[in-house]
Each structure stands twice: as C-alpha cells, then as structure tokens.
Write a protein that binds this DNA or RNA. Structure first.
Length: 947
RNA sequence: GGGGGUGUGGCGGAACUGGCAGACGCGCUAGAUUUAGGAUCUAGUUCCCAAAAGGAGUGCAGGUUCGAUUCCUGUCACCCCCA
C-alpha cells in the first residue's frame, strides 16, 4: 500500500516549511554567511518554463547544504515585473498592467512553491512594488547628484564639482547648467531609434534592417530629448574590476569586448587654404591642443596613428556637426539627400559588412597635419557619429572597410605598412593598391618614420603630434552612454520636476523630487496606447499629477519612464533589507551580507544586466552607500534546456523522400532542395523510424537507409510545440523528480536536450530510495524489515563514507550530475544488502535532502526523527574509510593491458615492479622479449617496455 | 566575417594534476516473478570476428610521451553570441 507518492508527500512538506517558516533568514549572521541568488524572472503570462528551475534548483541545493554545514543563508526570490509585455497585454484587453502583473506573480509563486525551493518568502519583492521603486527612484537621484572625477576615478557629489571662474561669475543659472553637463544622469538630444508604432525609442540591439525587432515596425532616427546615464565614465573600472570576480572567462571577455576599450590618437586636420596650413600649424604649437574644437579643424580618432601617411581621404558621419559647413554649394543637394537617407537606417545596418559601402563627396578638402597633403572629405554612413569623434581618416591600404570604399569610388590607395614575411601577403599587390592588409608590420612611405615597427611608430607619432599640438593620445570605448528613458507607461516614473516659466515653457532648470515626496507613483491614465507621436503616455495624466506647484513655482513632471533594466540593477541589495522604510538598505545589514556569494542565471544577461548592475553598484559604492566594489563574487551561467530530440525527414511534392544533405533553408527559412530551390515537406518522424547508419555518423530512414534524416534538439518554443510545462512534470512525476532530473541531465553550464525518459529514470531512483527504507507490502507506512540497528560491515561503512566524500565535493564544485550518480551507486549497493543499518541510512538521507527535500524529510521522519532535517548537521566522512585496502592494478606491455592484479594498497615502485614481473601471465608473454624499461606507478599501473 | 563553446556507445553523460575509456541514467536483450503495470528483481549491453583468443576505438590527420579523451599543430562539423 504505502508506495512512494510525491503528490501526497510534497504538498504536505511544503505546507510544513511555509507554516513553520523553516527557511526564514536569521536576523543575525553567525559564523560564515552565504548569499545565494537567482536571476529573478520576468513574470510572463505563460508561467514558469522548465529552464527556470534549473538554476533555481542549483542555488537551492547549495543553500540547503550550506544551512546543514552551519552557514547563515540568505536565499530570496522576487520578480522583475515592469516591461512591455504587461503593457501590451493591458492595451489589448483594456485592463490594468498592474493587475495582470500581480496575477502572473501569483502563478509564479505558486509554481515555485510547488518545487519546494527553500526561499525566504518573507523577502519576496517585485520591481513594480511602490515600496520598491521608491528606492529605484532614489538611486536615480543619487546618479543625478553625482559627477565623475576622472582624476580620482570616482563618482562624487555634484556640489563638489569645481566650477571655473568664468562660469561662477555668470551666476546661479550658469553654474547649474554647467553642473548639468557633468551629472551621471543627464538629458540629451542625440538622435535615437524612434519607433512610432511601438510608441517608444529602441536600443540599437532592438532594430534589424530598419525595422523593430518586435513586430517589424519601421524605425526612424530622430533627435529626441532623452535621459542618459554616463556609464562610459566607469568604463575603465568596469573593465579592470573584472579581475576581482570569480566569473567564467567567457563572460568576462564578453563584457570587455562590449566595453571595447581602444587606445589610439586624436588628430586634427586643418580645413582651409593650403598656404595657410603652415601658419595654422605653428599657431597650434603655441596655443596647445584645444579642448573644444575650433571651426577650421576636423578632428578624427584613430587606433592606427602609424598609418597617418596612408590617409588618402576622410569620412565624416552623416550626422556630424560639420557636414553643412564642409559641403560645397554644388555638392549640397546630393549630400543633403544622402544624409536624409542615412537617417532612416539603424547603426547596425550601416555597419553591416554585407551591404555595399556608400558615400558622397562634400567638395571640401582637409590637410593632413603630418605631411601637409590635402585629402578629400566624404560623407559616408559606415562612420558613426557616436563613435570617436564621428570622423575618420581613411587608410584604404590598411583597413578593410576603407579599402572597399576606396575601390567603389576610385580613391587613391597608399600602402604605408609592410607586412611581416610570415603574413604571406603579396607585397607587390599591396603596394599597387590591389589588396588590403590590416595587420601590423614595418613602416614604409612614411618619411623619417620608415623602418619603425607599428608599435614603435605609434609611440613616436603620438609624441610628434603632441609636441606640435595637432594631436594627442586618446582612449575610446565602444560602450555608449546608456539611453535610459522610454516613452511607455509601465515603468518607473523619473523623480524629476521641470521648472516652468509664466508661459508654461521649460526654463531648463530641473528639480529632483525630495526624498520625503518619494515615491512618485504612476498616475491613472485612461489610455496609454501608443499614438505614433513621441509624447509619452504620462503626458495624458491629469494636471494635478503633471503640474505640481512647489513654493509658488509651477513645475511639470518628467513623463518618460525608466527602462526595464532599472529595477534589476539593485534588487540583490533590497533582498537584504526588503522592508526598510527609511533607507534603500541598512548599512549594517549590507556589510553583513554583501557581496552575493553565488549568482546563477542565463547567459543572455551576460552583458547588459550584469554591466548595468555593476555600474549602479559602483556609483553607490563611490557615494559611500555600499562597502564592496563589486556586487557578484561568483557567477555561473546555466545552459539552455532544449526540447526533446527530434528526427525530421523531407519529402518532395511527389511524396518521394529526399536525403537531408540535399536540403537547405532559403531566405524565408523554408526547407528547400539545394539544387533547384523547390520547396519540401518537413516530416516529423517517430524515433522508431530512424536508425544510425552502418558506416558514418548520420541517421537514416530504417525503411530506406539511403535517405538521411536530421536529428537534433531545438530550442523550446511555442511555435515548435516542444515546450515542457513544469506543472505537468510535477503532477506526473513529482517535484523531487523534476529537481533531480534537471540536475542529473548534465553539467549546469552546458545546454542539453530534455528527455521524458530521463525524468522517468530519476523517478525510478527515488522509488528505489523509498523501497530501500519502506516496507511496501505493509498496510501502514513503516520501515522495511531490512532496516534496523545492525552493526555496519566494513564494506557498508566504506560505501557511506565514499558517498559522503563524493557528494560533498560535488556540491562545492556544482557537479550535481555526478553527485546524483554517486547516490545512485549507494542505493544500488544497499538494495542488495539484506541488512541496512539505520546508522548508515540516516546520513544518506541527509545527503539526499538538498536534492530531493520532500522525500528526504518524509524518510527522515520515518527513521524516527520528529523535526525537519533542514538544519541537521551535514554528514562527515573519515578519509581512511573512503579507500579500499586492496587495489586492482593493471599491467601493460607496450602500453596494452595484458592482465590485472589485486594487491594491497601502498606498495612501493620496486615491490610493484617485482610483483608484475613475476605474474605468470606476464612471464609467458615476455618469453623471447628483452625488458627495456619498467614504469611502475604505485596503486595505479605497471607498464613494461619490451621487444 | 569576428568571438566563445562543444565533438566520447543507439541517447544524456563519467573519467581528479597525462595512468584500467564508457561511472551513473535512459534505451535495448534475455530470464525470473506477477494482482498484466509506464511494476519489481537478476544478468547482459562500445564496435568487429559465430564464440574464444584477438583486434579497433573518445570528430578527422599528424606530433610529444613508456603511456593521450586529457598536452601541442593542422583540419572538419555543429551550437551560441556579435557583426
């Protein structure tokens, strides 16, 4: 009767943990602490996906284990709930995004509780909670109140910004405007990707082929007033502090590349008559390198100042401020048209290697400061206004894009770098301008610099430029300042008030909403549908919200909202002190708990979320609110869980099978015949219909082995219909089985295909654990007669100690799949033992408990314990009891195993060698051979070299 | 095109610093048992040769080494990210 029934056991223990607040975080940290954090989910309408519990189970195992080894554990969960889907849903169904979000959160909480995670639910937060985003707004104001002191490499209060004399003489307003230029949160009017249909601006990453990634709506470039965060100021620290953290190298590299630090030079080219050039240059040498660009110069940024002699033309971005000024009258119309067209393209499309480079001549020339040569200035959209100075010197001989452009427009090409011999570059062709070489080498055609290596040349030329003040060394970043505002409803309102004059126009003066007036809640807005104009939905709030009056002055609230990233930038801090009403976190608690010891989540957040969160953290650190420079000590990315493996075959219109290698996907992602492009039917096969080829690595049709079929696992998606719902797995196999299966599938960081048969396999294991202890034939739940107070045999004791050792080590290294296999071995062993000592069963149940907590609690109770095992001491092992007395040593001749001998552990090399050479089988095999050498590795093997 | 990752049985995957390749699980085969179920137990299961003896074998081709899944060189395939 008493079969293992998770459907009964699991809800019972979940209720027990809930009612007893078993996993409430202790108020005080005693001894070592562990802060184990999951990347909190976006509560979508679809509910939990099987991908979520993978990382969650991993942190849960680590947390449960940590409690048992006596650590004080913080293990919280919350929701990243602002964002477009809730708003879109609300618009479609004429409902409230808050209600929809709350409903989804409830579903998620229910599902997470069904999985038995040991979260401290008293600390649940959502970024949409008014009590939470009050402090998101407060942190924004910290950013607003901070400037970055480049000398100290530190964010400081804006009140400490040194004000130049000429500014302070100009009065209060001038000072305020000057300060506004330096704030980490600032307004900008730069061109952005505006999508009328979605009613918001989009990040570059969200625009493909001039259309929005979501919904394929047209996107246009236009200048709009936006909030920006000066993340570029922290670029160096965001890069160098990566050395401090224990993250996967791949993720660190991604972040480095995203920051994209490059060193090179800024060089000023003279614009004007050639006979004025020498005057300009000598005047420069006297005045020094100007901070602000004078009118008669064009400033470029280059990472290859050593190719300055090879600059045969220049390119400025279509948005460059000097376009109009540089365009001559007769080139005017064509330049104007070109710039207008470029405005419709996204940065991404413009930099796409596949599209042909295009550009137009402005009619003007600039003069190369190093050799006085005039070079034509072109406008081309492969140069971006936002990178460097928005202008480049083009060196077609040594840059692939410049080369392509020069070839297209028949511009001169001058080679100035001779490649090293080992590069195998055809020097003649390079010198003739027929090919391009972007590597490093030795300088040629560069006057007195000839013969220098690229590295030497760079140093020399920067010196020369610096001495004459026409250039200087410069650092550049690919990282852009962070576009921080959205024209949507469902986000955090900015706590900023714009002062209005009598006529209701902005005076340009901004006032932060004071702390005591925070939070700025979202107003009621009848309709927040996008309307194609850039005014945000909050513009439609009533006057009372929109136009506050303070001290007799009228203000207008900021009506943009923050992007979804905002809330996730600091949630890990709030978990430490979630109910604090007077501060975003208590400094004492912050000191106790930070940093996060283990942070697990998907690799899709490898760049943006982690970079943004680190940036906010550093600002808060600089301003004295935090004590750690980095938030996340150890980061692990879980792999993606793919759908079950699918076999697909292809049929043509005549219902004839087509072998897989003859097919390909066309531009519309339809499968077609490679040779003719004829469309094919895709047939999903039953696994029974396919088999592995006799020779080779392909799967073929069983019925026709000539026909190859595709076999692979696909990403789970609604459209493919291969999504696995955790609720279904829990109902059918139990939460413990789901947890165990997700951990048993393979290494945490690796992506792996789902397999229903595999779930059944771990369920079998849990059934066997049950039967190892429970008498299934009895009427009532009772211990099996094999379990009792027997004295354990040596072998049994060793089995336990080996298992404790392996499982403990595997939890530390997050090798959960092997930990589970070790426990399986334990159960396989004891299933065969007629006597199962209770003294060995109890520690085993404790080992199992972080993985399968419900079953473990149940069996723990059955073994006679009356309280939860959550805080029982983790079993200890005795090293001497983990090794067998005898060891099997293979004996090889010429590296091939010939026999194995069983000997006592710890024999010396000499003893081992002697034993091996006396082995009868070896003696026979060595007849007629001369032993040249014997390699003996104690307890491992013997290899005899003989011929 | 650039960067990152992965290639081991029919499948998911083990193998610590170079030392018995295939732990553990799925699947499959045979047997036992049975209240016929997606149950349990036992044995087997990398491939080749009827079996044994033997041989081959960690994507492929080389190299270093007494010995390579592990280190080196080249190469191919797939996946992910970026362009």
């Amino acid at each position: 009767m008493p079969k293992y029934n998770p459907a009964e056991i699991e809800p019972r223990w979940q209720r027990f943990w809930d009612e007893n607040k078993t996993f409430k975080t202790p108020t005080e940290v005693k001894g070592e602490k562990l802060y184990a954090l999951d990347m909190f989910p976006y509560p979508s309408g679809e509910g939990l996906h099987v991908g979520h519990p993978e990382g969650y189970t991993a942190t849960d195992i680590v947390s449960r284990h940590a409690r048992m080894v006596g650590k004080t554990v913080l293990h919280p969960m919350g929701f990243d709930a602002f964002g477009l889907p809730a708003e879109e849903h609300a618009i479609k169904h004429n409902a409230s995004p808050r209600e929809f979000t709350e409903k989804n959160i409830n579903t998620f909480v229910r599902q997470l509780k069904d999985l038995g995670f040991s979260y401290d639910w008293d600390r649940q937060i959502s970024t949409t909670d008014v009590d939470y985003f009050k402090w998101t707004q407060w942190i924004f104001l910290v950013l607003f109140d901070t400037w970055f002191d480049a000398d100290q490499q530190k964010g400081r209060p804006i009140s400490e910004l040194p004000i130049p004399a000429e500014i302070s003489e100009a009065g209060e307003d001038a000072i305020r405007k000057y300060q506004d230029e330096f704030r980490l949160a600032f307004e900008s009017h730069a061109p952005v990707n505006w999508c009328p249909a979605l009613g918001t601006v989009l990040a570059n990453e969200e625009v493909v082929d001039g259309l929005s990634d979501v919904g394929n709506h047209p996107v246009q470039r236009m200048p709009l007033r936006q909030w920006m965060l000066r993340i570029t100021a922290y670029a160096d620290r965001l890069e160098s502090d990566l050395d401090e953290v224990d993250w996967p190298e791949g993720i660190k590299k991604l972040q480095c590349d995203w920051i994209g630090r490059s060193t090179g030079a800024e060089v000023d080219f003279f614009i004007g008559d050639q006979d004025q050039f020498e005057n300009w240059k000598s005047a420069r040498t006297e005045t020094g390198f100007p901070r602000n660009l004078p009118e008669n110069t064009l400033r470029v940024y280059t990472t290859r100042p050593d190719t300055l002699y090879g600059a045969t033309y220049m390119v400025i971005a279509p948005e460059h401020g000097a376009v109009e000024e540089l365009t001559t009258a007769d080139q005017g119309p064509i330049v104007k048209k070109y710039c207008d067209d470029a405005a419709m393209k996204s940065d991404r499309d413009r930099q796409d290697d596949r599209t042909k480079k295009s550009g137009v001549f402005t009619g003007s020339y600039a003069i190369n400061p190093i050799n006085g040569q005039p070079v034509p200035i072109w406008v081309a959209d492969y140069v971006l206004a936002s990178y460097g100075t928005g202008a480049i010197m083009a060196v077609p001989a040594h840059d692939a894009r410049d080369f392509e452009f020069a070839k297209t427009y028949d511009l001169p090409i001058t080679a100035v770098v001779q490649p090293p011999a080992k590069a195998e570059i055809d020097l003649e062709k390079l010198m003739a301008g027929e090919i391009c070489f972007a590597g490093i080498g030795t300088a040629v055609n560069s006057e007195s610099f000839d013969g220098l290596t690229t590295e030497e040349f760079k140093i020399k030329i920067i010196e020369t430029l610096d001495n004459t003040s026409v250039g200087r060394s410069a650092v550049n970043y690919k990282l852009r300042d962070w576009l921080f505002s959205r024209q949507r409803f469902w986000g955090e309102p900015f706590p900023i008030l714009h002062e209005l004059d009598e006529a209701g126009n902005r005076t340009g003066i901004m006032r932060p909403v004071p702390l005591e007036s925070l939070p700025v809640d979202l107003p009621f807005v009848e309709d927040f549908k996008p309307h194609g104009r850039p005014e945000p939905p909050l513009e439609k709030a009533d006057d009372e919200w929109l136009f506050p009056v303070i001290d007799g002055k009228k203000y207008k609230r900021e009506t943009n909202t923050m992007p979804q990233w905002a809330g996730s930038c600091w949630y890990y801090l709030r978990f430490i002190d979630p109910h604090n009403e007077s501060a975003f976190i208590d400094p004492e608690l912050e000191k106790q708990w930070m940093p996060v010891d283990l942070y697990i989540g998907g690799a899709e957040h490898a760049v943006l979320h982690l970079l943004y969160a680190r940036f906010w953290h550093k600002v808060l650190f600089d301003r004295g609110h935090l004590h750690t420079p980095e938030p996340f000590k150890k980061l692990v990315n879980q792999g993606m869980i793919l759908g079950d493996v699918e076999f697909t075959a292809f049929r043509d219109t005549n219902e004839q099978w087509v072998s897989a290698e003859l097919t390909c996907e066309n531009d519309e992602r339809k499968t077609v015949l490679k040779s003719t492009g004829a469309e094919l039917h895709v047939v999903k096969l039953d696994p029974e219909q396919a088999e592995k080829e006799k020779e080779g690595d392909n799967f073929v049709l069983k019925s026709d082995p000539q026909i190859r079929v595709d076999s692979r696992a696909y990403k789970m998606s609604k459209s493919r219909g291969n999504v696995v719902n955790p609720d279904v797995i829990i109902a059918e196999y139990g939460a413990d089985s789901l947890r165990l299966y997700e951990m048993f599938m393979g290494p945490l960081h690796q992506s792996k295909p789902w397999s229903m048969a595999g779930v059944n396999g771990v369920r079998n294991f849990l059934d066997r654990v049950w039967r190892m202890l429970v008498d299934e034939k009895a009427e009532e739940l009772s211990l099996s007669s094999s379990v009792g107070d027997h004295a354990p045999t040596d072998e049994q004791t060793r089995m336990l100690h080996k298992t404790i050792k392996a499982v403990s080590k595997d939890i530390e290294t997050l090798g959960f799949n092997t930990a589970i296999s070790r426990m399986m071995e334990f159960v396989n062993f004891f299933t065969k033992q007629a006597e199962r000592p209770k003294s060995l069963m109890e520690p085993f149940i404790l080992l199992l408990s972080p993985f399968a907590p419900h079953l473990a609690e149940e069996l723990w109770q059955l073994l006679g314990n009356d309280s939860s095992l959550a805080y029982e001491s983790w079993p200890q092992f005795d090293e001497s009891l983990t090794v067998d007395a005898l060891v099997e040593v293979p004996i090889q001749i010429m590296g091939k195993i010939k026999t194995k001998i069983s000997i006592e552990r710890g024999k010396s090399k000499q003893e081992l060698e002697a034993i091996a050479l006396q082995d009868p089988k070896i003696v026979t095999l060595l007849e007629g051979l001369t032993v040249r050498k014997v390699i003996a590795v104690p307890d491992k093997l013997v290899n005899i070299v003989a011929n």
